[in-house]
Amino acid sequence: MPVNVVAENVFGYLGAFCWAIQLVPQIWKSRRTKDTNGLSQWLVLLWALSAPFLGVYVIVQNLNVPLILQPQLFCTFALVSWGQCQYYGKNRSKLVSIVLTVSVAAILGCFEVGMVFALKSSNHEGQVNQRGLQFFGIVCSVIISLALFPQYYEIWRLGEVRGISITFMIVDLLGGVFSDLSLIFKADFDTIAAITYTLVVPTDAEGGLLSWYLLGKNLR
């Protein structure tokens, strides 16, 4: 595939946009119903935990701006959704839920900034410590791939789709597709980042199919 900076950035921005708004339908649904029963708090917490690892990787690799923004937005909305799980699902007070959410955000933010400086300072003659950098990309891929399994369990446990927005899963899937396309048009194809984005597609597709199957089963 020929290098195309315009296509790289267009698809990058589309991917960033999808991942910026993907959890908005879920956040809105939880706020509207004041209920997160059926939405696994581990799904959104693990997603939030994966974001700093991806953030370190894309920043040090100096990928395009949209792909650098993605993990930051991803983490923010995942933590908002997790905070809703504490408030609506765990019946914690609003203050406690906010404090917990902000505390986790601060810890993850400090971790990401610290690791970015640590990796950049370990450069030798302009070369990044590739093993250290690959570690962050691989850990992110593993966490993202595992994060949806708690949600699958919730769907099977309840025997129905409850508390989760199908729209958010579809938009998340599109974000992975557009981000992959952005990497295809980049001069140097980034395999680890591509694996991370690609893993989102089958896991979301599987979750969506499971949700539609159980929804149809319950309607019969």
Score class of each variant (00 low, 15 high):
G163N: 09
V128D: 01
T167A: 14
G114T: 13
G163R: 04
I155F: 07
L148T: 08
W156S: 11
I166S: 13
Y152D: 07
S93G: 15
S145G: 14
E112Q: 15
L119S: 00
V142S: 07
F111I: 07
W156C: 13
T76A: 15
V99H: 02
L79G: 07
Y152F: 15
A106H: 10
L146E: 02
V96F: 08
S122I: 06
L174W: 12
L100C: 03
V139R: 04
V128C: 05
Y152C: 13
V128W: 00
V116W: 07
L146D: 03
L69I: 00
C140R: 10
G132N: 05
L100V: 04
I166Q: 15
S145L: 08
F185E: 03
C85H: 10
G132V: 11
N91H: 13
I166Y: 13
G83E: 00
L173Q: 05
L173N: 08
C85T: 14
Q134N: 15
F135H: 06
N91W: 01
Y88E: 01
K94N: 06
H124P: 06
V116R: 14
R157C: 04
F117D: 12
P150R: 06
L174T: 05
C75K: 15
S182L: 09
G109P: 10
E160G: 09
E154V: 06
N129I: 08
F77C: 13
T167Q: 15
D172T: 13
F74D: 01
E154S: 14
G159Q: 13
S93H: 00
I144Y: 05
I170F: 14
I98W: 09
M115N: 11
F168P: 00
R131T: 12
F149E: 06
G109H: 11
L158F: 06
P150E: 03
I98D: 01
V116E: 00
S165L: 06
G83T: 02
S103T: 14
Q151F: 02
L183C: 02
C75R: 15
V139H: 05
Q84N: 03
I143R: 12
T167V: 13
V102L: 09
Q151Y: 00
S81C: 14
F178H: 08
F77L: 14
V102A: 09
V116K: 14
S141P: 03
L174I: 07
L69V: 01
W156G: 04
D172H: 12
V161P: 01
V99N: 01
K94D: 00
I98L: 12
K186L: 02
Q134P: 02
G159K: 14
W82P: 00
Q134F: 05
V96G: 03
F77H: 11
L108P: 01
L181Q: 12
S103K: 10
L146I: 09
I107G: 09
F135S: 06
L173K: 02
M169Y: 10
S103F: 11
Q127I: 13
V104I: 15
A106P: 04
L69P: 01
N129H: 13
F74C: 08
F77A: 11
G109C: 06
E112Y: 10
I164R: 00
W156N: 10
V139I: 15
M169D: 04
I184R: 01
S141K: 03
Y152T: 10
L119V: 12
L158A: 09
